[in-house]
Structures are given as C-alpha cells and as structure tokens.
Design a protein around this nucleic acid. Structure first.
Length: 376
DNA sequence: AAAGTGTCCAACCGCACCGAC
DNA sequence: AGTCGGTGCGGTTGGACACTT
C-alpha cells in the first residue's frame, strides 16, 4: 500500500536510497542530528560484528551520501575485501560488516534496483520452489538483484501472493492438504532412512516408484511422457513440488544445453534436469547420505531406464566423495550436451549449482563444489 | 486534520563456514 | 586439533511513509 515509488523505482546506482531521496528533497529516514533515527541502538549484542565490545563510537543506521561516497571511492581505488580494516582506511566510522553490506546491497555498480519485472518474479518463484529460502543462491541467478532485495520482495509480495492463491509459500504446496489430487505426493514414511521415489507424468500416472522398503513400486513404466515429475519426501522436513510444467526458465536453460541441478542440504538434495532435446523433464528430491548412495544409484538407474535406454549413470568414489556421472545422450564421449559429473555429500551439495552443460570438452564432465559455485 | 494501521526495505544481528596458523 | 580472523548468509527489526478511519 504504502511504498515510495520514487525510491523503489529509482534507477540511480550510486546513492538512490535514503541518500538520493534526500538529495531530491524527499523525506529521509537517516538521522543527521539525532541518534533516535538509528534503527538498532545500544541494545545489540557485543559479540556481533567486527570487534567484540568495541563498537562504541561506530556509527550505525542509514548511510549518508558522504559515507557512500567515501566507501565507493575507497573500493574503486583499493578494491573489495579486507572489510575489517576498510572503514578506518576509508575514514568511515562504521564497522566492516556494515561497509560490506552497504557496498554489496547498494553501492555496487552492478546492483540493479527498482521494479522487479514479471519474468524476474516468475524466476524468483521457481527458484524458491527449488531452493527454498536460499536467497543468495536465488540472487545469483538473477543478474543485478541482491539477496536482500529478493528476500524482501519475497516476504512482502510473493509469499502473500502465493497465500492468496492458496499455496503455501514455504512448501509451494496447496495450503489445503485435503485435496485428493494425485499431484500431491503419496504418503511417505517419515523415517529419514527409508527412501521412496515416485515419478509421475503430466497426467499424474506413476511412471516409477522406487521404495526400498517394500519394493511394491519398483517396476519402471515405459511411458514416454514428455514431462515427468519425481517426488521424494523422506522426512517431514522435506517438501515436494507442485506439478512441473515447462517454463521460461527451463526453456532458457534448455537452449543452453538443458540440464539444471538444484539445491540441497547436508543430507538431501533436489534436482531438476532435462536432456538436450528438452523432451524429458525430470524433477526430483531425495535424501542422501554416505550410507545411502546405493539407493541414489538405483534410483537414477531406474530413472534413466524409463526414457532413453542408452542413458547411463555411473557412480564411483573419488577423493572421498561419491561422484555421479550422467551421460544424458548416451554417447559417452564427454563432449556431448548433458554430460556432467558432480559430487554429492555435505560439502558439495551445501550450495546447489545450476549448470549449463554445453561446451564441456572434459570427458570427465564438470565437478561443482561449494566453493566453485560461490566463485562463479 | 489527526490518529491509527499497514507496508516497505535498509540495516542490523547471530551464526556458520572457510582458510590460515 | 584448536583457535582466530575474515567473510557470507538468513532472519529480524524498526523507522519512514502510504493509506484508512
């Protein structure tokens, strides 16, 4: 309701927040004379931020144009990093953390501020469905947007939008669980170590259902439905997904080679992928840990056997991590579209990667790790 | 016009992770 | 193996502003 369109839509990359608002003669929130304007005052924990217990004398609250200028000029001159010592060198009475935040979320030239376009909104929704509240990862896929901005946009707009549509913004599932729709996952055992996998097509017919408990659903179907959905919910904390339809997001990824992997945590992972022809979409989530990579292997073998019989999945162990090689077009030559190797385990899957799979000449594929993802 | 309410979002906090030592 | 500094992340806060009564 409220909203200040001028501030939201402000294209100014340099100082369009409270700073530029002031410059434009509009109301401001930053204090120039009174400490009451500071948002968080002396109640903060002494253990936070840069120097424990030495925050006395450091300025807090909204940044002034002068501070922005000092910070920008210093970073342009000296580069990013060394945030702890930066304030002193730059002549700022701020803690390093505050400087970093200001730069990352506001002053960086690459930061795009203002109205979030419908396609960006759609992308945020889809990435959130895939990744959850991992704002930095979501932001990493949306050029110019910061995690803070996306987080705010989600909390103020998108979550409410989903709720108004009857969708749980946390799980992306219908709020009313009484729906008999087959799109909802079947009841899963809540035991974390009991893995079950269901693949269903667009008509919600199960194509694969692997359940290592009872083996009732381990016969893969030969259905060649163009879109398959895998749900796997080994624990109450894991979520499944809304029906998967083609999207602009996937179309974009498809054009680049058609393989995308999603996120995960210490003991689970989510994934979505297509083959190079974009005619086999698969979307899954499963729990995995060191003791259950065999389940993962069998799951993938079942998965692959349903579509192109030439596809293969190999799992081996290297560098003390389980690694998986996908050869999606079955050529096995490594220079084809969709050939990928990745590792899984707590470290590797702590940060998901979305990986275009074209143009890899490495027959061993690509190995993505947490650090690599951060570096990109 | 004034008071109350709702919304937005920049900035903060605590914590986790990583690498160096 | 443990400690420490640096950095990054997700959740939360609260002042400013818009809207409603």
């Amino acid at each position: 309701m409220k909203n200040n369109p001028s501030s939201i839509l402000s294209p100014s990359p340099s100082s369009s927040s409270s700073s530029s608002i002031v410059a434009a003669g509009q109301p401001t929130c930053f204090p120039t004379t009174t400490p009451a304007g500071n948002k968080k005052t002396a109640t903060s924990s002494p253990s936070s931020c840069c120097n424990n217990g030495s925050k006395a004398g450091l300025k807090r609250g909204p940044w002034t144009p002068e501070e922005d200028q000092l910070l920008s000029e210093y970073i342009k001159r000296e580069g990013e990093g060394k945030w702890r010592t930066l304030p002193k060198k730059a002549g700022l009475l701020r803690c390093g953390k505050s400087c970093r935040l200001r730069w990352m979320n506001y002053l960086r030239p690459s930061v795009k501020r203002g109205h979030i376009a419908p396609d960006e909104e759609d992308l945020i929704l889809r990435l959130h469905r895939l990744l959850g509240n991992r704002w930095s990862l979501i932001a990493g896929r949306i050029p110019g947007r910061t995690d803070n901005e996306i987080k705010n946009y989600w909390n103020t707009h998108l979550s409410k939008k989903l709720i108004s549509q009857g969708i749980d913004p946390r799980t992306h599932k219908p709020l009313l669980s009484s729906s008999p729709s087959l799109l909802m996952e079947p009841p899963y055992n809540q035991d974390h170590h009991h893995h079950s996998v269901v693949v269903s097509d667009n008509n919600n017919n199960n194509i694969i259902s692997n359940n290592n408990q009872d083996g009732d659903h381990d016969k893969p179907s030969t259905s060649s439905s163009p879109s398959k959905r895998i749900t796997h919910n080994p624990s109450s904390t894991c979520t499944t997904f809304a029906p998967f339809h083609s999207s602009t997001f996937m179309q974009e990824e498809d054009q680049q080679g058609g393989l995308m992997f999603g996120g995960g945590g210490d003991d689970h992972m989510m994934m979505m992928m297509t083959d190079d022809h974009a005619d086999h979409h698969m979307y899954g989530m499963m729990s995995i840990d060191d003791d259950h990579h065999d389940v993962f292997s069998s799951f993938f073998n079942s998965l692959m056997s349903t579509g192109d019989a030439h596809r293969d999945v190999l799992i081996n162990s290297q560098n003390q991590q389980q690694q998986l090689l996908l050869d999606l077009d079955g050529h096995g030559d490594g220079d084809d579209v969709g050939n990928l190797m990745f590792s899984f385990g707590s470290a590797a899957w702590d940060a998901p990667a979305i990986i275009p799979t074209t143009a890899t000449n490495d027959s061993k594929g690509q190995h993505f790790s947490h650090q690599q993802q951060k570096d990109t």
